[in-house]
């Protein structure tokens, strides 16, 4: 009897994992506000990036401020492969990253191990 209950619980957990990780969930999005010909967005790094999708205005100099709260070495670097940026993120320190917004498009960024991703939209 116990074994059947355990089996049911186990399968339920598997169902939950599938739903939780692969189901459709909203991600945090932000559009940068433009002030005095500058735009900036604060990104918190804690178990991923929030916001995960950032929209920037084309042609306006942009700065993304990354602050890593997470102790994981997985997230200790942030890489924008399209811009040649590979910035170390010391824990609890704000790191400003300048983004070249001259070309419109969608750009991915990732952690140093390519496990966590974020998206930058320039338009």
């Amino acid at each position: 009897m116990t074994r059947i209950i355990v089996l049911i619980i186990g399968l339920a957990i598997i169902g939950f994992i599938l739903w939780w990780f692969f189901g459709k969930h909203e991600v945090a999005q932000t559009t940068a506000t433009v002030n005095d010909d500058n735009q900036s967005v604060d990104v918190e790094v804690n178990g991923g990036y929030s916001p995960e999708v950032i929209t920037l205005k084309k042609g306006v100099p942009a700065v993304l401020n990354f602050t890593r709260k997470d102790a994981s070495s997985c997230l200790d670097r942030v890489v924008f492969s399209d811009f040649g940026i590979n910035q170390e993120l010391p824990q609890n320190e704000k790191q400003a990253i300048k983004i070249d917004t001259t070309k419109a498009g969608e750009y991915q960024w990732a952690c140093g191990m390519d496990m966590f991703h974020g998206k930058l939209i320039i338009k």
Binding site: W20, F21, G23, H25, V27, N46, G47, G48, S50, E52, K69, D70, A71, S72, C74, L75, M113, M115, F116
Partner: peptide, 16 residues
């Protein structure tokens, strides 16, 4: 554990 929990809340998972 902290990192695992933080990413879990965002529907992510990693080595942690």
């Amino acid at each position: 554990i902290q990192s695992a929990w933080a990413s879990f809340k965002k529907h992510h998972s990693n080595m942690d």
